[in-house]
Write a protein that binds this DNA or RNA. Structure first.
Length: 791
RNA sequence: GCCCAAGUGGCGGAAUUGGUAGACGCACAGGACUUAAAAUCCUGCGGUAGCAAUACCGUGCCGGUUCGAUUCCGGCCUUGGGCACCA
């Protein structure tokens, strides 16, 4: 007795069990395809239908590659360190380690419903000492190569999270995590010299198959600009003020100077009568939050009482401080050209400072005026000429400048990888010897952040107190931990060799499996995670651990799924759980619906109205196979033609990653095939073809149908069908007949009809309409249309 | 303010390179089957006029190029996203 009804519950259970017992992706002799999802944070929030979207898409890619003859690496793991996990733990009063374990178990159970091809043997967690041993090892290598350094500096500080933020973590002056205003705080921090890689991080973007949008965001973040550094002498002082400018051609128009309030020369240059006012301004600038500072419209500032000298015009320049000059961009000081810079103009106008025009007209097409011997030069010529003159005089040079700043790498929190360093009074900072890694996180009861900005680890004295690896004297451990990004910056390497306790990754395996071929994840990581991962990869290349410089060959960012016009999130209370939908319609239906909802790269509004249609489609396809298997007819050219068109549509649409039209293509073809089967019967090969094509999208059902057609091995051991365009061609085609570009008639002609015959037939079809008119032009587009231009 | 997307029926969306606008699906309406309902199947479904054949209009707005424009160009409007005093 054959089961005629599509019983998804039974089928899905059956094949999950089957795949577990007999895995389908085991042939490691095939060429590899590494298809990776950005791994999730196991926070307390359950997965919602938005998470599914990316995971389903990458799994469809992975399963299609399997059918196309690859061995697919498609792993999954947990980005479990960091603030989200720690904050969840604090809120719920559970130790982060416990909370992480529970959350991982919960999320993993949910993830199982997707029925992705994940190889759970490769599962990893960034919180596993066997994993973070190597996170620490990379840090030690960076330290040894001079890329990690300690610095006391005013840093972005989130008073709510009680933690230092990297520049990348401050969004519009607010903490990226909690949304609260970020302020400045002076603290000793560990920094990573990512700026040393700025040029390579920028240049290597060119070769990547990534969305242009993401490449542009990274390029903007790196922010390369060309210009000059120029020294200005100060009246009565030996020091000089060095500025960076992109417009050395406007030097004759520099009429005053402004330093950032944090600039090191400020107090020296403030004259007695101005000192109090300057000090007050600096104090205000330091305590005001970034949000408030940016909300300020008016320019403010204090004249320091000192003067500099314009090196070409000789003019005396008042030296001011103002918070519109940023301490950490360029040199923290600028020459002000109010004639050609809007902000300088605003400042000059407010404080009555001189304004000189030196480019006429004042745009790219202008030439230099009021500039002595440079008069008449274009902007481009002027940049070169002025810079050359300054260089000859030894007071300037051509410079390239970057917005990118070094990475604040330490966090004053508990739930992270301990930074593996030891502070010794005699030897200074000494890395923990590699054979003593990992430095494990001590298990403690109090992991709440401290108000002082110290790490909670600082309170655990028997962990902090140790001996120096170099001189064996009493020494203290570094108590800061690493940021969440540390583990995610290199985890993709580890999947390939997850159990190796001798090295980060075996070189042979590395060569065979990496880099990642296809990386799928949210656009929110366009700068942070992807930039850091690229930096780590380049460093690991430099020290010979990997043999490639870019970790992710191709990147795809799936669109977000919104509900009621807003991003789905637990805090907004608008999440939709996949669990109920899986229960009602099955995993295959939800997989297809996630793809059907719209173009994968675009945001979509969640709306369950269409899910019924997808479920109906699967039922129809089920019925088509069940009704026609066992009484298959001999293949006719008409069967072949339909079959090749089916393969063509699904394959090319998938190649373009147009997943939504792949699903509509399946629906369309199933309707056509059903009609044809009723009229002429259906051949075995076509039935089997649609099952194989369906397998990446609805794997459970495809397996069941494959079995129904008399096979006893997995459908995933088949190969992706090939199409032959010559076999797709129709015998007769429809030609549109237009008059003056307007549709008038449709005619049917033989596919190989000659041009003259088509035109003749077209004329016949519109003969009545042509009466009294003259054809002035005939347009013929083979296979498509005829257009008569008439008068 | 600057940069980047997007704007198509009641709804989600489709449309190779400039070549039949609205595929596929949802919703809706009518019908078949049924004692009835569900499920399923069939038909219709952009607007206006018309019994109809058909005609005209129609892809955010205004204009242009072209035999022909959702597609290309110029100028706007709206929405979403990114950056934001970067010298």
């Amino acid at each position: 007795m054959q089961e005629r009804k599509y019983n998804f519950r039974q089928i899905e259970q059956k094949w999950r069990k089957n795949w577990e017992e007999r895995p389908v992706n085991t042939d490691t002799t095939r060429p590899k395809f590494y298809c990776l999802d950005m791994f999730p944070y196991p926070s307390g929030d359950a997965l919602h239908v938005g998470h599914w979207r990316g995971y389903v898409l990458s799994d469809v890619l992975a399963r299609q590659k399997l059918l196309q003859g690859y061995h697919v690496l498609h792993p999954m793991g947990w980005d479990a360190f960091g603030l989200p996990a720690e904050n969840f733990a604090i809120q719920n009063n559970i130790h982060p380690e416990e909370a992480t374990k529970t959350n991982i178990a919960k999320m993993k159970a949910q993830l199982m419903d997707i029925a992705a091809l994940y190889d759970w043997d490769l599962e990893l967690s960034t919180t596993d000492p066997a994993f973070y041993k190597w996170t620490q090892w990379i840090f030690v290598q960076m330290f040894k190569h001079g890329l990690a350094y300690e610095k006391e500096m005013p840093l972005n500080w989130c008073p709510a999270c009680k933690v230092v933020l990297a520049n990348e973590e401050v969004v519009a002056g607010a903490c990226e995590r909690c949304g609260g205003a970020s302020t400045k705080k002076n603290l000793r921090q560990w920094m990573l010299k990512i700026t040393a890689y700025a040029e390579r991080l920028l240049n290597d973007l060119n070769g990547l198959d990534w969305p242009d949008k993401v490449k542009k965001m990274q390029a903007d973040w790196i922010g390369k600009s060309y210009g000059a550094k120029i020294d200005f002498e100060i009246e009565g002082h030996d020091e000089k003020i060095t500025v960076f400018t992109t417009r050395p051609d406007t030097l004759f128009g520099a009429t005053f100077m402004v330093l950032a309030p944090e600039h090191e020369l400020v107090l020296k240059l403030a004259t007695e009568d101005k000192r109090a006012e300057a000090e007050q301004y600096i104090k205000d600038a330091g305590t005001i939050s970034n949000v408030d500072r940016m909300a300020k419209k008016d320019k403010t500032g204090v004249f320091l009482g000192s003067y500099a000298v314009n090196p070409v015009s000789g003019q005396r320049l008042q030296i001011w401080i103002s918070d519109y000059v940023l301490a950490d961009y360029g040199t923290g000081a600028i020459m002000c050209v109010p004639g050609h810079d809007e902000r300088d103009f605003e400042f000059a106008t407010k404080f009555g400072l001189p304004i000189i025009q030196v480019i006429d007209p004042p745009d790219d097409t202008g030439v230099m005026i009021n500039s002595d011997k440079f008069n008449g030069l274009t902007v481009a010529e002027g940049k070169e000429a002025v810079t050359a003159e300054l260089a000859a005089r030894g007071i300037g040079e051509k410079t390239t400048n970057y917005k990118l700043r070094d990475w604040v790498f330490s966090r004053q929190r508990y739930w992270g990888e301990p930074i593996p360093l030891i502070h010794c009074d005699a030897c200074g900072v000494v890395p923990v010897p590699e054979d003593q890694l990992p430095v494990t996180l001590p298990h403690v009861d109090s992991y709440q952040p401290t108000d002082t900005g110290d790490s909670p680890l600082a309170l655990i004295t028997d962990w902090v107190n140790t001996t120096c690896p170099t001189c064996d004297q009493a020494a203290k451990r570094e108590t800061n931990t690493m940021p969440q990004w540390a583990g995610s910056s290199w985890y993709f390497l580890r999947y390939a060799d997850v159990n190796n306790d001798k090295e980060l990754i075996n070189p042979e395996i590395m060569k065979k499996v990496l880099p990642v071929d296809y990386y799928v994840g949210g656009i929110e990581h366009a700068v942070l995670h992807l930039l850091y991962a690229r930096f780590y990869t380049k460093f690991l290349y430099d020290i010979g651990v990997v043999d490639f410089v870019e970790p992710f060959t191709k990147l795809f960012n799936q669109g977000m799924i919104n509900k009621d016009g807003k991003k789905m999130s637990k805090s907004k209370g608008n999440t939709v759980s996949p669990d109920d939908i899986v229960g009602k319609y099955g995993s295959d239906t939800l997989r297809l619906y996630e793809l059907f909802i719209g173009p994968p790269e675009m945001d979509a509004e969640w709306n369950e109205n269409g899910i019924e249609g997808v479920f109906r489609f699967l039922n129809k396809l089920w019925k088509f196979v069940a009704d026609n298997t066992g009484k298959a007819v001999k293949t006719t050219p008409r069967h072949e033609q339909l079959r090749h068109k089916l393969i063509y549509d699904i394959t090319t649409r998938m190649d373009n990653l147009s997943a939504n039209t792949v699903v509509s293509g399946f629906m369309e073809h199933t309707n056509k095939l059903t009609d044809m089967a009723r009229a002429d019967g259906m051949d075995k090969e076509t039935i089997e073809t649609i099952i194989i094509l369906l397998a990446p999208f609805a794997p459970h059902m495809a397996e069941e149908l494959w079995e129904m057609t008399g096979h006893n091995t997995s459908v995933f051991h088949q190969s992706w069908p090939q199409y032959d365009e010559t076999k797709m061609a129709e015998d007769t085609i429809t030609i549109v007949v237009q008059m003056n570009g307007k549709l008038r008639e449709n005619i049917h002609v033989a596919a190989d009809a000659a041009k003259d015959d088509v035109l003749a037939a077209a004329k016949v079809s519109v003969a009545g309409r042509l009466e009294g008119l003259t054809i002035v032009k005939e347009i013929y587009v083979p296979g498509r249309l005829v257009n008569f231009v008439v008068k």
